[in-house]
């Protein structure tokens, strides 16, 4: 290496102190991207998610959205479980794409991801499961739920193309708030994949408004500040928060995190368009020893919640 020419530059101590100019350091509160041109187009198209929520609204029913991890307890059982969930009253299925570092998930879904990964599940396999499910069910919307990195490594273009072809309707990227969605949105739009956002009790009104502008499909309202499966559901609190979010967000609201029983689901149905149930179901499936047992567990878990929701909505209508 040649000896570089040498100058001693003395930088004023102020800049040196933090090495930052004031402009670089303003607060980080949300600034969202402008809508991409494709977005309006994809929104105007009636996809499976929109159709489902429109039908729910028309019939006055509350949507039921179970979450399961693709490939857990066994990849060979996943589509059978999905069909059983639909038969038991699921309106949308959130299919978890397992990730090694599920930062927003509690122990139940962490373990579920670990089991699926240990058995070799990957994004290819997830899309294969969707394709296989879709060959027998053309109606039920499927939303892939997971973290960005598996898709980053797979490649966005490739993912979006294959996912749309397999019959995926939307994606919920847990670690991709609207502020970071600029680069992925055009690709998803191009393939008519809805991007479902998370909102939570800590979302500021300003961010809720921006989210409302970007929302596709539905908005997943996280019922408390915490991780999936936690025992922190405070119904009164959620009631008020959802009512506030409602004023801003016009897309359907699905509420989830910590819902374990039909009673809780019914209580939330008063405010929400749909309820999402994940950990409690995943926990039941994990106990199953074979596919038949898993299918039975799925049905036994979901059917009573469906009946309770329907009974409640009939009461409301009457």
């Amino acid at each position: 290496m040649p000896a570089p020419a040498f100058h001693v530059k003395i930088v004023p101590d102020d800049t040196m102190r933090w090495g930052l100019t004031p402009e670089t350091c303003t607060g980080s509160a949300g600034r969202c991207s402008a809508n991409s041109p494709n977005q309006l187009e994809s929104r105007s198209r009636m996809n499976r998610i929109d159709k489902t929520f429109a039908a729910l609204k028309q019939t006055g029913r509350t949507g039921l959205v179970p979450f399961i991890t693709a490939g857990d307890p066994d990849a060979a059982w996943t589509t059978a479980i999905m069909h059983a969930l639909v038969a038991a009253g699921a309106d949308v299925i959130e299919l978890g794409v397992p990730f090694s570092d599920p930062m927003a998930d509690g122990p139940v879904i962490q373990k579920s991801s670990e089991r699926a990964l240990a058995r070799g599940m990957n994004l290819h396999g997830v899309l294969e499961l969707v394709r296989s499910f879709r060959s027998e069910d053309a109606q039920t919307p499927i939303v892939l739920m997971g973290y960005l990195n598996p898709i980053e490594y797979f490649g966005w273009e490739r993912f979006a193309g294959l996912a749309a072809a397999a019959g995926v309707d939307g994606v919920l990227l847990v670690d991709c708030p609207p502020e970071e969605a600029d680069s992925v949105r055009p690709v998803l739009d191009q393939h008519q994949l809805a991007q479902i956002f998370l909102a939570s009790p800590t979302t500021t009104p300003a961010r809720l408004a921006k989210m409302a502008a970007l929302a596709q499909g539905y908005v997943y309202y996280v019922s408390f500040a915490g991780i999936t499966g936690a025992d922190r559901l405070a119904l009164d609190d959620v009631h008020q928060k959802i009512a506030a979010a409602r004023k801003v967000i016009h897309a359907p609201l699905a509420v989830g995190f910590g819902i374990k029983s039909a009673e809780q689901a019914v209580a939330l149905a008063a405010d929400a368009d749909a309820v999402v149930i994940g950990s409690a179901l995943v926990e039941q499936l994990a106990l199953a020893g074979d596919q038949e047992a898993a299918v039975r567990a799925a049905t036994r878990f979901l059917a009573p919640i469906r009946s309770a929701l329907d009974a409640a909505s009939k009461l409301k209508a009457a």
Binding site: T21, E23, T24, T26, V174, P177, E179, T202, T203, A225
Partner: peptide
Amino acid sequence: FFTQPDARGHFGPYGGQFVADTLMAPLA
């Protein structure tokens, strides 16, 4: 080189705030 990160924490294409929505308010 002292101009990074930008207001939302990006160093060129790197950095940022890739977190679940619940963490956005505490980070702000």
